[in-house]
Nucleic acid binder design. Structure first.
Length: 423
RNA sequence: GUGGGUGUAGCCCAGCGGUCUAAGGCGUCAGGUUGUGGCCCUGAAGAUCGAGGGUUCAAAUCCCUCCACCCACCCCA
C-alpha cells in the first residue's frame, strides 16, 4: 500500500448515487413483502461476542474457521463483526424474553454482513443481507410460509428463472443414524476422496455432500439420500412441507446434496439460485434451526429463517434487464441573474420548499444559458428565471422545460401556480 | 487460502521499447454577441500511463515486488 491515494478496503464498495435506485427498489420490496406477511423489523448491532457466532455456526464451518472479522476491544472482549444474521436475532430473542410474546415471533432484518473471503463479482467482504426469522413454532406450515415469502419477494422484484432447491437433513434424533450410513458409505469407497473430504469424514460428515471437487462428484452424487433416513416425525414434516409448497404452486427440486454451510440447521434446508448460473450464484437460502435457541441459552424454541444477499439480487436485476424507477429529484430550478435576483431566489426557494415543491437553486455567477443547461440535466419540469426585470416588477418568468412555453407570474403567486401545474 | 487474467484522465478505451511534450469518445466547464436548455459547432480543464523498484542510451510499452479488480477453485449471500 505505497499508494498515497486511499481506496475502499479490499472487498468493500461504495454504493454511489447512480446505484441507489436499485437499493431503494429492493428496500421497497422488502417493506412490502414483510408487511404482507407480518414480519417486524429488528436491527441488531454490527458486532457481537465472538462466542455467539462460534457456538451457533459450528467450529468446523468455513465461517468460523477462516471468515470472521474478530478483534479485541479495549476492555479485552473478543468481538466479531456479524458474519450472518441469525445468531444475533436469536440472541435478541432470548435477551428480550420474546418467548413471552405470542408465538411464533416473526422478525426481519436488513444488515451489513462481514466475511473475510476472496472478493469476486457478487461477493464482498462487507455485503448486505435481508433476512427473516420465524421463531417458536415447528409446524411445517411455517416453513412453507417462509419459503413462500422468499419466493414472493423475488417475484415482487421481477426476478424470474430462479430455482428453489430443497432438502431435509433430519433432527438430533435421526441425523446420527443417517450420518452413520453416510460414513459407512464413504468408508466403502475406494480411496479416491480429496483431502478436504478426508477431514470432513472425521469432523463434519454432512459436509461431504457439499464437496465440489470433480473427483468426489460421482461418490457424492450416489450417496444415500438423507430424506430417506428421516425419523417418522421428520419425514412427516418434510412430506407436509412439500404438500404445502405444492398448494402454493412453488416449484422446487429435491437436492439430497444440499446441506448448507452452518451446523445449526435441522430438518428443512433450501437455497435459491438463478437457473442458468454456476459458481457463487446463490442469491438466498435458509432452513430450520430447531435447537439453536436452546443451545444459546434460551428456552427451547423451534425456528426457521431465510436470508438473501442484496448485492447479488441487484446483480440479477441488472442481468435480467428489469427496469427500475428513477428516484425523484427536484421539480423546479430557480435561476437568477445578479445579486438582487439572488436574494429573491433564496426567498422563493424557501417558499416553494415550504409548499412541498422540490426546488433546486443555481449557485455561482453563471450565464443564464449555463443555468438552463443545468436545469436540463437535472430534469426539472419548470425553471423559474429571475433577472433585473423580474425584480423590478416583483414577478418571475416561469419556463416549462418540456417545450418553449413560458409565462410571467407574480412572485407572490408562484407557489400556488406551481402546485397547480405540478399536480 | 490456491491458480489464471487485467490495471492508461470521473467513465469507456487507442497506443505495447524511441516519432507519447499519451490519441479518441462520453461526461464536466466555458463560448457560439445584448437574459433562455435539450441537437449542433468551437474551445478549455482533466493522466505522476495502479504503486514501488529494476533492465536499457531510451519504458505506458520488458522484468520483479506490492495493491486493487475480474475469472476459476474453496465457500457462500
Amino acid at each position: 500500500m505505497e499508494n498515497n491515494l486511499y481506496q475502499a478496503a479490499r472487498g468493500t464498495t461504495d454504493i454511489l448515487p447512480a446505484e441507489q435506485p436499485y437499493w431503494r427498489y429492493v428496500e421497497k420490496a422488502i417493506a412490502e413483502v414483510t408487511g404482507l406477511y407480518g414480519y417486524q423489523r429488528i436491527d441488531t448491532p454490527v458486532f457481537e461476542d465472538t462466542s455467539l457466532f462460534r457456538r451457533s455456526a459450528g467450529e468446523y464451518t468455513d465461517i468460523v474457521q477462516k471468515e470472521m472479522y474478530t478483534f479485541d476491544d479495549r476492555g479485552g472482549n473478543s468481538l466479531t463483526l456479524k458474519p450472518e444474521g441469525t445468531p444475533a436475532v436469536c440472541r435478541a430473542f432470548i435477551q428480550h424474553g420474546m418467548q413471552n410474546l405470542p408465538q411464533p415471533v416473526k422478525l426481519h432484518y436488513v444488515s451489513p454482513i462481514f466475511r473475510y473471503d476472496r472478493p469476486q463479482a457478487g461477493r464482498y467482504r462487507q455485503h448486505y443481507q435481508f433476512g427473516v426469522e420465524a421463531i417458536g413454532e415447528a409446524d411445517p406450515a411455517l416453513d412453507a410460509e417462509v419459503i413462500d415469502l422468499a419466493w414472493r419477494f423475488y417475484r415482487t422484484l421481477g426476478l424470474t428463472r430462479l430455482a428453489l432447491q430443497l432438502n431435509s437433513i433430519g433432527c438430533k434424533k435421526c441425523r446420527p443414524g443417517y450420518l452413520a450410513v453416510l460414513k459407512d458409505y464413504y468408508a466403502r469407497q475406494p480411496g479416491t476422496l480429496c483431502d478436504d473430504c478426508k477431514i470432513r469424514l472425521e469432523k463434519n460428515p454432512l459436509r461431504l455432500l457439499d464437496c465440489k471437487q470433480a473427483t468426489c462428484q460421482p461418490v457424492a452424487d450416489a450417496t444415500p439420500e438423507s430424506f430417506k433416513y428421516l425419523c417418522p416425525e421428520c419425514a412427516e414434516h418434510f412430506q407436509k412441507l412439500q404438500k404445502y409448497l405444492g398448494r402454493l404452486e412453488i416449484p422446487f427440486k429435491l437436492n439430497h446434496r444440499l446441506v448448507r454451510g452452518l451446523d445449526y440447521y435441522t430438518r428443512t434446508v433450501f437455497e435459491v439460485q438463478p437457473e442458468l448460473e454456476g459458481g457463487q450464484s446463490t442469491i438466498g437460502g435458509g432452513g430450520r434451526y430447531d435447537d439453536l435457541i436452546e443451545e444459546l441459552g434460551g428456552k427451547p424454541a423451534p425456528a426457521i429463517g431465510f436470508a438473501t444477499g442484496i448485492e447479488r439480487i441487484i446483480l440479477n436485476i441488472k442481468e435480467q434487464n428489469i427496469s427500475i424507477p428513477a428516484l425523484p429529484g427536484p421539480q423546479v430550478l430557480i435561476a437568477c441573474l445578479g445579486e438582487e435576483a439572488r436574494e429573491t431566489a433564496i426567498n422563493l426557494a424557501a417558499q416553494l420548499r415550504k409548499a412541498g415543491i422540490g426546488t433546486a437553486m443555481t449557485t455561482g455567477d453563471r450565464s443564464l444559458k449555463a443555468q438552463l443547461r443545468q436545469a436540463n440535466s437535472l430534469g426539472v419540469r419548470y425553471t423559474v428565471i429571475i433577472g433585473g426585470d423580474e425584480v423590478k416588477t416583483a414577478t418571475v418568468t416561469l419556463k416549462d422545460m418540456s417545450g418553449a412555453r413560458q409565462e410571467t407570474v407574480s412572485a407572490a403567486d408562484l407557489a400556488g401556480r406551481l402546485n397547480r401545474l405540478l399536480k
